[in-house]
Amino acid sequence: MATKGSPRRGGGPRGRSVTALLMAAWLTGCGTPSPAGSTATPAQAGSDRPGRSDRSVGPVAVTPGGAGPARVSYPVAGAGRWQVAAGEPAAPRGTGRLLRYRVAVERDIRGLPVAEFAAEVSATLTAPQGWTTGGRLRLWRVGPGGPADFTVHLATPGTRDELCGDAADGYTSCRNGDRVVINVARWVKGVPGYGAELAVYRRYVVNHEVGHRLGHGHERCPGPGRPAPVMQQQTLSLHGCTANASPYRDGRRYSGPPGTYADRIPPPEPGRPG
């Protein structure tokens, strides 16, 4: 939702050493890939995060989409330790610009295997009408240990606030530098009044935040009843547009006028994240 280098909704960096924590995770704590991915653990996870234990209440269990047996649980704020998905075996063919990305799930999130989340992210980014449409861009998911241009994090609401470095809201997702941060509360619950199924919202939020990493700013609804641009802040409001998860439509980049709206960020539910 927010991105470094573009207007933010109040507040500045929170002053915590997020970069040092992430570097510790990648450089000193990466494990050996397993069928479900690998584990990256900072040597002193949580020790340099003042106040984190005060906000880490009991886990919240959520059934995605309100149906089905799968339940995802997570605390308000996790410890900032990550499971990193295994990489894809080979880079996609073509001559377009190649960007490598990792996918990481915070270990405090239960019931959502890192391999499952990574598969959804990769399918979204390479789908027809996705960011690789037209062949000018190639996106390749890599595992731990090698170079990556950015990382897609699935984070608890509290860790979202740490990684985003903006005004803490516990609600939205964001992009901050080479970190694309998806709030698990939005991943499992979506947003009210979106007008499309949860799977569509998930594709939207991945494409929106990765779009910021690709250099795209916020856009506005181009007209009542038209599809919302993927770079519109659809998490907060559609402003007369209809839900849309794809950056391309009919093979062409679909966009709206640049800009944002003065939308209010909903408060977290009392006693629960996001």
Rank of each mutant, 00 (worst) to 15 (best):
R253T: 01
P144H: 10
T41Q: 14
G146S: 14
E88S: 14
I265L: 13
V18A: 15
V191H: 02
S255P: 05
A123M: 02
C241Y: 08
M1G: 13
P13H: 06
A196F: 00
P33C: 06
V18N: 05
G225R: 10
A2I: 01
G29A: 00
T132S: 09
N207E: 11
Y248R: 12
D48A: 14
Q129W: 07
P89L: 01
S122C: 00
P128V: 06
P222R: 06
Y254K: 11
A45L: 03
E106W: 06
Y204H: 04
P229G: 11
V84W: 01
A262Y: 03
W26R: 14
R249A: 11
R252W: 01
A25T: 14
A245V: 02
A43H: 06
N244S: 15
G12A: 13
R272W: 04
E106R: 09
P258Q: 05
R179W: 03
R252E: 13
V180D: 06
D178Q: 08
V60R: 12
S122A: 15
R141T: 08
S237C: 12
A148S: 14
V57I: 07
A79I: 11
A43F: 07
V60T: 15
G51N: 05
V180Y: 01
A77R: 09
A262G: 15
D250S: 15
I182C: 04
V72C: 08
A90T: 14
G215P: 12
T260C: 04
V72M: 08
G78V: 04
L214T: 11
I109E: 07
A43N: 12
V121T: 09
A115Y: 01
G68T: 05
P59A: 09
T63V: 13
G68D: 01
P257G: 11
R213D: 02
W131H: 13
L238S: 10
A168D: 15
R81W: 05
C30I: 09
R252N: 07
P268L: 03
G96H: 02
L198A: 11
N207V: 07
A77D: 06
A85H: 07
C164N: 12
Q129E: 15
G215N: 01
R175C: 08
Q234A: 14
G15H: 03
S34C: 02
R16F: 04
L139N: 10
R272P: 05
A40I: 03
R272F: 08
S246Q: 12
V121G: 10
D166A: 14
G31S: 07
P42R: 09
P128F: 01
P267F: 04
D48L: 11
Y201M: 10
T124E: 01
G274R: 12
D161Y: 01
G87V: 00
R226E: 14
Q233F: 02
G145N: 10
P113C: 06
G12R: 15
L236R: 13
P92Y: 03
Q83K: 12
Y74V: 04
G211N: 08
T235N: 10
T28N: 13
R179H: 11
P266E: 07
G94P: 13
L163S: 00
Q129N: 15
R203A: 13
S38R: 09
W82H: 01
